[in-house]
Nucleic acid binder design. Structure first.
Lengths: 127, 127
DNA sequence: CTTGACTCCGTACCATGGTACCGGAGTTAT
DNA sequence: ATAACTCCGGTACCATGGTACGGAGTCAAG
């Protein structure tokens, strides 16, 4: 459960070695001390990678994730809440926009599929 | 309504001059002949820019938009339909994912807001 | 004790969708 | 006519989120 090399950490997290290094460069994952010449990673690093994945799924950018990590350390709940509710509002907007686009496109598809001659209404309707 | 310079075309479309040029380089917008040394754009170009905007709103990438434009010219309704329904499916997936993320984040926010001590549950829950 | 897999670090490169800057020529308004 | 603006073409740069590569060192198994 402990004592991963970078490769085994990456495999455990389901990402690439280069991505692990990339997160380290971005300051999202700390670089552990090394045993000999090879760095050894533990459960905390794996947790951090899981956190990054989940936060990415919630649509936070890596920059914002860095901020969340810093805020977690500083226990600044108010600012975390602020970021979270901004993100909820942004997600609401994105969802509404996507639903609109989706419905429009689905309508047009069924129209285009119902075989009338002439140019496809999908393209026409976008004009 | 006609006879735009690149700057007035861009203003009319609500985008930047550089973006117009960029679309030209990408082959999304054709470069009109010039009257004298200045290129003159017409309603068709403005339509094309509007088409690009709408297709972008539907989540098509510029590459896919290029394909749509080509397909429109070749009247290949079947392939257009295929692209459109792929996009609808992708939008459905994105919408579902975002709703999940949104609800999760909203729940966590209200939990975090309801003042208990300790670390913010938003961060905790992402672990 | 060699071979092969893995690690280290730095740097370069990728796609996407633009945005900025340059020098020089042309255009428009006063 | 002269200043201010716009255009042209080309190239360089930006952020985002990675991905790839090269050379040197290290480690474990056969």
């Amino acid at each position: 459960m402990e004592n991963h090399s970078i490769g085994s950490l990456a495999r455990a997290a389901g990402i690439g070695v280069e991505t692990v290094r990339f997160y380290q460069r971005k300051g999202l994952l700390d670089v552990p001390p090394r045993a000999g010449s090879i760095r050894r990673y533990g459960a905390d690093h794996l947790d951090r990678l899981r956190f990054i994945r989940r936060a990415k799924e919630a649509g936070f950018t890596l920059g914002q994730i860095g901020e969340l990590i810093a805020l977690d350390r500083s226990r600044d709940r108010a600012r975390i809440l602020e970021l979270a509710s901004e993100r909820v509002a942004a997600l609401d907007a994105e969802i509404a926009q996507k639903i609109k686009a989706r419905d429009r496109l689905a309508d047009l598809s069924s129209e285009c599929g119902s075989g009338r001659a002439g140019p496809c209404p999908i393209i026409e309707a976008f004009l």
